[in-house]
Design a protein around this nucleic acid. Structure first.
Lengths: 194, 194, 194, 194
DNA sequence: TATGAATGAGTCTTCATTCAT
DNA sequence: CATGAATGAAGACTCATTCAT
């Protein structure tokens, strides 16, 4: 009834994830301490351990919750014929999915060294490999393979580095998407040949 | 004459930089402790402090030493007319420069969150902005701007992510270069319009 | 019932302060390490950090707790008319207050260089200045000003240096008090003139 | 010929003492590192070790050099009859001697805890005891003993604490001297009796 | 008369984690 | 559903000192 503390009963787990992601994305995983997270939430460190077994677990849970749409997308993509239209559709939906969980992917992008050693490192890498295999035929020209991978990077990095640029975020996202789609399309057609 | 300890007199500073870069690139900056670096070199931690004032200073000195060619390239590029040929030349030479200091740039790529808080974060960002301004006219179509930036990412990320792919590294580098050059060329011509 | 470890639950903070003050007074602030304090208490260094944020904070907390009576005295003195009787009363009560927190003031006396750089240095100095302004009119004869200040020193130093002298401590304190009172009285009357 | 570096040949030892005393007095003994001293002199730490065996030795040598006049004074005083005139003379000359080596005695005053553990601690204390025995008869009234000791403190502390007070330093020294002389005189006459 | 290079012991401090209550 | 109190391991860094040159 007073709104702040009482009403939150039960959503502490969620609040931990929110604050943790915010800090992880801002400062990096290693530089964010549990003390800091706890302080922001005005609970004790021990409370975090009631909800999560380890620091890494907090991150894993965030990753699992927030990257579900991407997992679904990849699952879907796997079952489609690998036509150009499918690829374009995947890129389009991938772009949306990234935008929907921007802080998480900013974090993944900026903490690769850390993430690599963590459980989510493996999970993420596996997904990327599946995605790559959908987007590019393994027997394709090397240049076209690079083009496909480049499309993926463009999507990933695009959102964060473009923050510096002025302009409407949604405009920028669409520009990024266009470039990625273009790359995928050229890769599909074998532009490397021309 | 016994080669290990005696001969090394005087090159300790260099050896520190080498080992540090190796470990920083492998495990990340924060996860690499000075103890670890010292142990690998079979010296004490205090010896590191004889040669460098802080942990960060070690990194800064590596960055300064290894990224000199890139600084020179950017300096050169600034003075050229911003023609398509210049841009292509810059991309070509940038690709070479990155390959020449691969571990450093792998480190920069994979530790962005950390690097951002460090002195080299600012230095690096400034350089990238200059490079961007050379490669893309500020009044260009948004899509073409993205294309230019995408070219840069492709070069940066290309080298590391492509390690997974089988094939000759030099072949891969050339493939990456081709894609980047293609992106830059299309950006220059205003492909976004067509 | 076993008295040592169990019964102490909850008074760790106090025990830290006690041991710390003892060691600070004995060996000085810089020469007393947190390791030493922790060892005496049979806890880990980290336990100290649960109760206090820094080494300095331990000292500050001791100072605040133990010098409260003096703060109160000064506060009281400020509101009194600056008559001879007031001054004598202040000196008397000050002497008692010092005796009540002897180890702290011994520490302050013997670690002036250190204390000056610490937070309590400023606090203490401010108090002394207020006290001085109560005890001596700012327009007084220079010699009388010195007399007042000398009274203060006599009280401060008296207790520690006189430890060497044989005799009952309470007798010595009263002797010191008499000399200080004498100085204050002569300063008040303008003995410097005669 | 160029005056700074060349001419200094041979007086490095002296320069070390000067800089060391300055820093010791300013920051305290423990907080002053040999690195700091060396840097100010633009020599290496190792150079300090050419001239002095240890850090403590630097301090000892300073003490011995600068407190010679006081040692002489005490030696002289010992041989005089302990008349009032002698005592007054000693106080007068002691005041001068202190003023002549002010930084050293400021240091002694502000680093008592440190000094106590050092070699000079014992030396200094011994001298003080001799001085005390000259100034006050061991069978004197307790209050008069305090008065004598208070005179000494007044001289010691006077110079440093009075720095805050406005006014000509020489004036202040004379005021301090007057108070000290007064105390000694009253102690001699047995003012405690009256 | 110094220096360059290094060491060993120690400093304060932070961290993720635990567990009885 | 959480806290208070604590730990063990480790972190970056500083210091006085040494010694071959």
């Amino acid at each position: 009834m007073d709104g702040t503390r009482q009403r939150r009963r039960g959503d502490t787990r969620q609040r931990i994830q929110d604050v943790a992601l915010e800090l992880f994305a801002e400062q990096g995983y290693e530089k964010t301490s549990l003390r800091e997270i706890a302080e922001r939430l005005e609970v004790t460190k021990a409370a975090l351990y009631y909800h999560f077994k380890t620091k890494e677990e907090i991150l894993v849970s965030i990753f699992e919750d927030l990257s579900r749409p991407i997992e679904d997308l990849i699952e879907w993509g796997r079952l489609q014929p690998h036509t150009l239209e499918t690829k374009q559709e995947i890129v389009r939906r991938y772009s949306e999915a990234l935008a929907g969980a921007a802080p998480l992917f900013r974090f993944m992008q900026e903490n690769q060294a850390t993430v690599r050693e963590l459980r989510i490192g493996g999970m993420f890498k596996d997904r990327m490999l599946v995605l790559r295999d959908i987007l590019v035929a393994p027997d394709a020209d090397l240049v076209d393979q690079v083009r496909s991978i480049s499309a993926l990077f463009t999507l990933h990095a695009g959102m964060f580095v473009l923050q510096d640029l002025e302009g409407d975020p949604e405009d920028k996202r669409r520009a990024v998407l266009e470039v990625a789609t273009d790359l995928i399309t050229r890769a599909h057609r074998g532009a490397g040949e021309s």
